Amino acid sequence: MTKTMVQACGGDTRDITEFSLLQAILVDLLKGKRLLLVLDEVWIMEKAAWERLGQPLKFALRGSRLVMTSRNAELATIVGCDQRRQLRLNCLPDASCWSIWKWHAFDGRDLEISPQLASIGEEIVKRCKGLPLAAKAAGGLLRFKPCEEKWYELMNEILPAVRLSYDHLPVHLKRCFAYCSLFPKGYIFEREELIRLWMAQGFLPYHERLQPEDVGRKYFNDLVG
């Protein structure tokens, strides 16, 4: 990407690694132009990083637009997005997830499957919880594998798209989340009780301005988000 930007500015194709120089190149590219920038599946939550990114974007013409998608609802607050411009998408119904799943499992072909496999597939789709990315990932794993054993195996595992959410958590939230696996499936967590348990495990670090309970509430809200 850096080579493309340098070429667009009339320079050579050497790699540019200095951030300030990259910002200057972006400024030259954006001056007097209208911009549509789409950032999909965003996980960067550091406000300082967004401020650095935003500096060159200020040179684009009025009417430019930035569209972002994320599974973390807190991102809109971090980037300063007006609440009126936020769009919260609902989860898909099982019927729609089933269509997505079948498309990727059978490579777009309308194949007949046995009632047994259909029953397993429907259960897998229910476990996708209305997430299209989960349905797509699960269908892709079973592509051209009409084997009950393989389908059962996937049904009883964590779906890759759900696992992806965990993989992108910061370390301090990962251990708090992993601790919750000690409880039985369907357990209803009480926030304050869970925070006290995190405190007992030493998961809530010292903070100059916040009490441990306040840190725990922030962690809890981050996980809910």
Rank of each mutant, 00 (worst) to 15 (best):
L142H: 04
P212D: 00
K102Y: 08
G10C: 06
V6L: 14
E112P: 06
H207I: 01
C91V: 11
V162K: 12
E148D: 04
L117Q: 04
L223R: 10
L154E: 00
Q211I: 07
G10L: 11
C91R: 15
W151T: 02
A73D: 12
L142C: 02
H172W: 04
I25E: 14
L53H: 05
E192M: 06
E41C: 02
A105N: 08
M1S: 07
D15F: 09
E208C: 12
P115H: 09
L36A: 06
A8W: 14
R196Y: 01
L194A: 02
L22V: 15
Q211L: 09
K47Q: 04
E190N: 08
L204E: 04
Q201R: 15
S119H: 13
G54D: 09
C97R: 01
P160Q: 01
R34F: 01
K3D: 15
D12Y: 11
T69V: 06
Y206R: 13
A161W: 00
R127K: 15
E122L: 13
I124V: 14
F189R: 08
N90I: 03
S64E: 11
E148H: 05
L197M: 13
V215E: 07
V67I: 15
G225Y: 07
W151L: 01
N221Y: 13
R84F: 08
R196D: 07
L169T: 06
F19I: 11
Y179L: 15
E193A: 11
W101A: 10
I25H: 14
Q7S: 10
G140C: 10
G121C: 11
L39F: 04
H168N: 08
F203R: 11
L53Y: 00
P132Q: 06
I120K: 02
R109C: 12
T2P: 03
R196N: 09
A118P: 12
L35G: 02
M155Q: 07
E153K: 09
E123F: 01
E193F: 10
W98C: 00
R196G: 00
R84L: 00
F220E: 00
L21T: 15
I16Q: 01
